[in-house]
């Protein structure tokens, strides 16, 4: 699989997939998509990049150890739930705010935060698995 073509396009492909994964994550509440799918796409992107250009370059590119990303994701998801407790509704109840940013109404919610947490857990855990296994070649 280590052809020149693959190695040349892999970084671009990985970046595209990573961008797409964020898009899928964000639209997930109203269209097909969401944290699980987005996370899977991003993890695949990292896996492809790793196969093509070696695991060390992936590790440099994402700065953090992938399992730390997963831990951050879990933290984010739990925090989203705790927000609800702080304003006095049951754990994990969705809270919505609609701030005006540059004249556009932006719907933000703890659900998005939660879904982002899911995204990070899936990316982190699966990329960690894939990279660990790739590294052993």
């Amino acid at each position: 699989m280590n052809t020149v073509i693959f190695r040349t396009i892999a970084p671009y492909l990985a970046v595209l997939m990573a961008l797409f994964s964020v898009f899928v994550l964000l639209r997930g509440h109203n269209e097909p998509g969401g944290g699980f799918i987005g996370g899977l796409i991003a993890a695949s992107a990292l896996a492809i990049y790793g196969i093509a250009n070696g695991v060390p370059s992936v590790r440099r590119a994402i700065i953090f150890h992938p399992i730390h990303l997963a831990g951050f994701g879990l933290f984010l998801a739990v925090s989203a739930g705790i927000f609800s407790i702080l304003i006095g509704v049951p754990f994990l109840t969705g809270i919505w705010i609609y701030p005006q940013v540059f004249g556009i109404e932006l719907p933000l919610s703890t659900l998005l935060m939660f879904d982002t947490g899911v995204y990070f857990v899936v990316v982190g855990a699966l990329a960690s698995i894939a990279l660990t296994l790739e590294e052993r070649d």
């Binding site: 997930g28 998509g33 754990f91 919505w96 919610s109």
Partner: peptide, 17 residues
């Protein structure tokens, strides 16, 4: 839950825990 994708709403909201 203000979501149109029912599957995603179930995952992150109704059955979030």
């Amino acid at each position: 839950a203000h979501g149109r994708n029912i599957v995603n709403v179930i995952i992150v909201d109704f059955r979030g825990f």
